[in-house]
Amino acid sequence: MNNILEITELRKTFKGFTLEDISFRLERGYIMGFIGPNGAGKSTTIRLIMNLINRDGGDIKIFGLDNIKFEREVKQRIGFVYDENYYYEELTLLEIKRFIAPFYRQWDDRAFMQYLHRFDLAPKKRVKELSKGMKMKFSLALALSHHPELIIMDEPTSGLDPVFRNEVLEILADIIQDETRGILFSTHITSDLDKIADYVTFINQGRIVFSEAKDSLLDSYALVKGGRELLDRDTRKEFVGIRENQFGFEALTRNATHTRSIFGDRVLVERATLEDIMLYTVRGNTSA
């Protein structure tokens, strides 16, 4: 068994929101993108994995160990990055490091200094002097300096410009050169995942819509465009969501091959992006 993270029928109910029987798993050596609209349950799931809130039911295994029973052991081997800045603004980067390092048995000062250097962060700078992107990189440096096997990131790229985002993605690709590691990465910016993610787990309204290899998703889903006269009660069933306008329709199919066999040359069939898949699945049918 080579699952670095295994979630089974995870449940959590808040007032007005339920995370319903969430199940998915991540193998060592891969990057999983965790997507969904705001409020879908991404952060709740991640907080449950980190045991920051109590679960109502289900099972979370990290490195094959229960995340609550073996919390201390497990957290030694996780690098956790989240988007809110929780550091004391007045402290310098080195001072914060001195505060955090003792928690980790495997802390590696040399690695930390190398990350600071690589990310262009001056050790004597104060946190309040850092831009949002630099803070993100600093979190990443802190999270990686104890050589974690599993890296969990909650919205690491939100609020960053495309240049910074791309840098973060390059860092992730570097990390995963070591095939014993795994990365779970939540985001609502799906274009970050179109390229490097190996697996994509999509959550909507507290339920998992799918958790699959990105390649097979992008091969099976497709965007279909055609004239409205092609839509009737039967053909509509072919689509996850349809957008109609005066001049035609655009729709998402889950089975491009089948859709092609029905419509042939009468429609345009194009490669869907993760964003298309997310949009159509969340919104369903709309007509303009």
Binding site: Y30, I31, L169, I176, D198, A213, K214
Partner: peptide, 16 residues
């Protein structure tokens, strides 16, 4: 893994 990093693709793609 190296090929995937260089081309900015999923490891699954290069493996396949």
């Amino acid at each position: 893994r190296n090929l995937a990093r260089e081309l900015q693709l999923s490891v699954i793609t290069t493996k396949r």
